[in-house]
Simulated assay, not measured.
Amino acid sequence: MDAKRKNNKAWFLVLPVVFVVAFTAIIPLMAVANYSLQDIQGADNRIFVGLDFFKRVATDPNIQDAFARNLTLSMQVLLIQIPLGIFLARLMPKSGWKASAALVVVAIPLIIPWNVVGTTWRIFTRSDIGLGGVLVNKFTDYNLSESTFDAWVTILVMDTWHWTPLVTLLVYAGLRSIPQAYYQAAAIDGASAMAVFRFVELPKLKRVLMIALLLRFMDSFMMYTEPFVVTGGGPGSSTQTLSILLTTIAIGQFDIGVAGAFSLMYFLFIQIFSFLFFTVLTLDERPGATKVTPKDKRKLREEKEENQSIRNLRRF
């Protein structure tokens, strides 16, 4: 039988996307990889250094400290914004004009550009003219230019205000996709609100929460604009993220080789960590990875013994 001829002309529609991605991502990435392997001292003066720049990046104490700060900030962001987003999503109206109004209000921080968010919070937290800074100073001394704790908390609160709405909207969409039959069955059984959340909503939100976790981790680990505008990485280097340090090395010090190696290691870490994160979160959904409880084991053993008894009876 002759196989049907496949028409692959549709792939030509993808070519513009391939060219755009190649121009905006692949070619710059290749240029960065070139800088990371060569010490370019001039147009005609290049020295191949191999992995020397990568070794310098891996052993640089400033980069190690910035990495620890970034990782700490990302973990704090996830621990605060994921539960808060779930809480807000469950409080939002389910239908009607109130639901539409709530969605618009919640989405407002997401449409504000990052540099505008940083500038707004920079003015808002000033201790002389900022509403937030003046208000906080009535209860305690607040100065993010001098206090490491104040600067760190300000960055964390600002990011929470800016990006918790993303988690809220994702969770809200997940909640609205749950069939009403589950809630009706829970009401018939007399389940409490906590039981409904634990046994109905939370399992159905698993994939939504996985997306929220991945997005918030990647974005918080690459944070640059907001802390740079608000604190400039200070006081000292207390809020200096990897992105700010990378910019300082590449533009401030113009050490392109180290910056190139730094960029590649930064990029690869985010990709690998996100892949591992996704793999761990989806382990129980993979074929053959179903968890077997002791009750299931006992049931399987009983069925095996019953089948063996039936086979023995058939022999006689």
Rank of each mutant, 00 (worst) to 15 (best):
L268E: 07
A43R: 13
T120K: 00
G174V: 05
K297T: 06
T140F: 09
F199C: 03
I244Q: 10
D44Y: 13
G190L: 02
F221Q: 02
S147F: 13
W152T: 13
E306V: 05
T140K: 14
A151G: 07
E201I: 10
L276F: 15
F254K: 02
I256Y: 14
V167C: 01
P83I: 14
A66L: 07
A195T: 15
Q271V: 15
G85F: 14
L135Y: 13
V14Y: 03
R5K: 14
K295W: 06
M92D: 09
L245A: 02
V258N: 06
E285G: 02
I272W: 06
T154N: 08
L242W: 04
V134L: 11
W121S: 02
A66N: 08
A10S: 12
M265E: 13
A43T: 13
R314T: 02
S220Q: 06
N62V: 10
A259D: 10
K291D: 05
S243Q: 11
D296N: 01
L13M: 11
E302W: 04
S263L: 08
K138E: 13
D2A: 10
S145A: 12
A212G: 09
D60Q: 00
A99V: 01
L135T: 12
K291Q: 09
F199K: 07
L245W: 05
P179K: 00
G236V: 09
T248Y: 12
S309F: 06
M92C: 10
I27P: 00
L131G: 11
P227C: 04
I244V: 07
W163P: 08
V280A: 14
K55C: 01
A25N: 09
P179M: 01
I108T: 12
L29V: 07
M222H: 09
L268H: 03
E285N: 07
R90F: 06
N34P: 00
R286E: 01
I244S: 09
N45K: 14
R69S: 01
V105D: 04
G50A: 14
T148R: 06
S100D: 11
D2Y: 10
V57K: 06
A10K: 05
R311H: 00
N115F: 13
S243H: 04
F275L: 15
G232Y: 12
T241Q: 05
N143Y: 06
A195M: 12
D219A: 12
T140V: 11
L29G: 13
Q64N: 08
Q76E: 09
F267C: 11
D219M: 09
D189E: 11
L215D: 02
V18M: 15
E146M: 11
L242I: 11
D219N: 12
V167K: 06
S147Q: 08
V17M: 08
T239N: 06
A107D: 03
V200R: 01
L213A: 07
V292H: 07
E201C: 12
F19R: 01
G50E: 08
F262K: 13
Q76H: 04
I123Q: 05
G233I: 10
L169V: 12
P294F: 11
E305C: 00
L169F: 08
E306N: 02
W114I: 02
V200Y: 04
F19K: 04
M210N: 08
T168W: 01
D65T: 15
A101P: 03
L246T: 00
F273S: 01
L51G: 13
F54A: 13
L246N: 08
L283N: 05
S74E: 00
V18I: 15
T72K: 11
A89C: 08
